[in-house]
Computed example of a mutant assay.
Amino acid sequence: MSKLRVAAFTLSIDGFGAGPDQDLTNPLGVGGEDLHKWMVGTRTFRKMVGKDGGTTDTDEAFTVRSFENVGAWILGRNMFGPIRSEWPDENWKGWWGDNPPYHVPVFVLTHHPRDPIVMEGGTTFHFVTDGIHAALEQAKAAAGGKDVRVGGGVATIRQYLQEKLIDEMHLAVSPLLLGKGENLFAGLDMPKLGYQCTEQVATPLATHVIIKRA
């Protein structure tokens, strides 16, 4: 059965999934890039950015798992780019360049319509203006029975959690304190929403936690 999943999403110890003041220089907010040290050295990530080598340890295993059986993605607009309000032009096509690492349909939540963007490698960005439920319906249809992965950001994941729509989350808790930014769990009663921790594995750069909805 198709699941709605969050995978390889990194948090600081104090619960922040991104730092403050996102812009072109700091796409994950100030300090946000340091959260992902556990992943950037893995073989899978290095291959994504056109590099050889990389680790084949537990961090790599969780990175590989994050891409398994994914037929479509859902992204918040900030995960697509730093642009706010109306689209000024058609030039911005995402953070990843001409060949993004998704390789499946991607549904971007936005308030502002835009035509789909066909990229290299099988990625097509679709822009959804009528909310998280519409995006999920379209993503599941496009996934063809495979899972739908919510890539973030924090606000998008929180919306799906509040509606009890996420089936499973893999969070990588980085040994870093950000102090401020976007907090994933602030104000959310996860047990009341039906979620529980089912797995945890620690590595030198992260504690990997699996959370599932009963």
Rank of each mutant, 00 (worst) to 15 (best):
M1N: 06
M1R: 01
K3C: 07
L4C: 10
A8K: 09
L11R: 08
P20C: 02
Q22W: 11
L24F: 11
L24W: 15
T25N: 12
T25W: 09
P27F: 05
P27S: 12
P27T: 11
P27G: 15
L35E: 07
M39L: 09
V40K: 12
F45W: 12
F45P: 00
D52N: 11
G53F: 09
G54T: 14
T56R: 14
T56W: 05
T58R: 02
E60Q: 11
A61Q: 03
T63Y: 10
L75M: 03
L75I: 00
G76I: 00
G76E: 00
R77D: 00
S85W: 03
E86R: 00
P88R: 13
P88L: 05
E90G: 10
W95S: 00
N99M: 11
P100T: 07
H103N: 13
V104H: 10
P105A: 03
F107H: 07
L109R: 06
P113T: 04
P116Q: 00
T124Y: 08
F125N: 06
F125V: 11
V128W: 01
D130C: 08
A134I: 02
Q138N: 14
A139M: 12
A141S: 14
R149H: 08
G151F: 15
G152I: 03
I157D: 01
R158W: 02
L161E: 14
Q162G: 15
E163N: 02
K164G: 11
L171F: 15
V173Y: 15
P175C: 11
K180N: 10
E182Q: 15
L184P: 08
L188K: 01
K192M: 13
L205W: 08
L205Q: 13
A206S: 02
